[in-house]
């Protein structure tokens, strides 16, 4: 069983997420699809934070701009924007845990109908109960709004949006919005609210690759950019 639907590209997922972040926001982007979000925010009034201890991160550094003392949390050399500032790891996580991040965008292996998600440990892949947690658990509990950016299903076709997560959790009830290559889904009190679907697909198509029963928004529409 392979992937059933193609949907939109990772780049367009990133654009859709960028449009979800209001001007005037402080935001933190995780590894993978979330990193691509900053490709769509030029000219926007959004300040990005990186866990290593910096506000106002700029684009990736090229050639002579590379400075070994200036990297992002994925260990990529970056540049600084006007208004950038540097601080310690403790300060960085005081901001994150303290609720100063308006938006965090993270990847995940699984997301549940209750907004639980997992992104650090697929059982059997690493020895014991270990994995790369990094800053994900702190971002999950600290950010005012948590957006999960994922492919709707695994490459093998296995579902990722589930009634209950089966892998070890990153956080419980933390997710606010799920943006996939197929749909935009809000985690509401009543359950998962399907708000947008990729061009050419129907809400029934999305339900066929989503375990929890979706609530179809009366205003459900095509994913807009």
């Amino acid at each position: 069983m392979g992937k059933k639907f193609e949907g939109i590209s990772r780049e367009l997922m990133a654009l859709r997420i960028a449009n979800e972040i209001p001007d005037g926001s402080y935001a933190n982007l995780g590894i993978g699809i979330p990193t691509l979000v900053s490709n769509w925010t030029e000219g926007r009034d959004i300040v990005f934070e990186t866990e290593i201890g910096m506000l106002n991160t700029g684009p990736l550094a090229m050639g002579g701009e590379v400075d070994q003392d200036l990297i992002n949390a994925s260990c990529q050399p970056i540049t600084e924007l006007p208004g950038a500032c540097y601080f310690s790891e403790a300060e960085s996580f005081a901001m994150i845990r303290g609720g100063y991040m308006d938006v965090a965008v993270l990847g995940a292996f699984q997301v549940s109908a209750k907004g639980d998600f997992c992104g650090w440990n697929i059982p059997g892949q690493r020895p014991g109960h270990t994995g790369n947690i990094g800053g994900s658990m702190d971002l999950a509990v600290g950010a005012k709004k948590l957006i999960i950016a994922i492919e709707h299903t695994m490459k093998t076709g296995e579902l990722k949006i589930l009634d209950e997560c089966t892998y070890p959790l990153t956080a419980k009830g933390a997710v606010d919005l799920i943006v996939t290559n197929l749909a935009v889904i809000e985690v509401a009190k009543e359950g998962l609210l399907l708000k947008e679907v990729a061009s050419g697909l129907t809400p029934e198509d999305i339900q066929s690759v989503t375990e929890p029963k979706l609530i179809i928004s009366p205003d459900v529409k095509e994913i807009e950019f």
Partner: peptide, 27 residues
């Protein structure tokens, strides 16, 4: 977790033996 890791060190340097954090609850 990264934030807990650095806060454990921060606390260690500030005479705080332990602290409560929301990070990791339910995991």
């Amino acid at each position: 977790p990264m934030g807990t890791f650095i806060e454990r060190l921060r606390a260690g340097g500030a005479g705080i033996p332990a602290f409560y954090t929301p990070t990791g609850v339910g995991t």
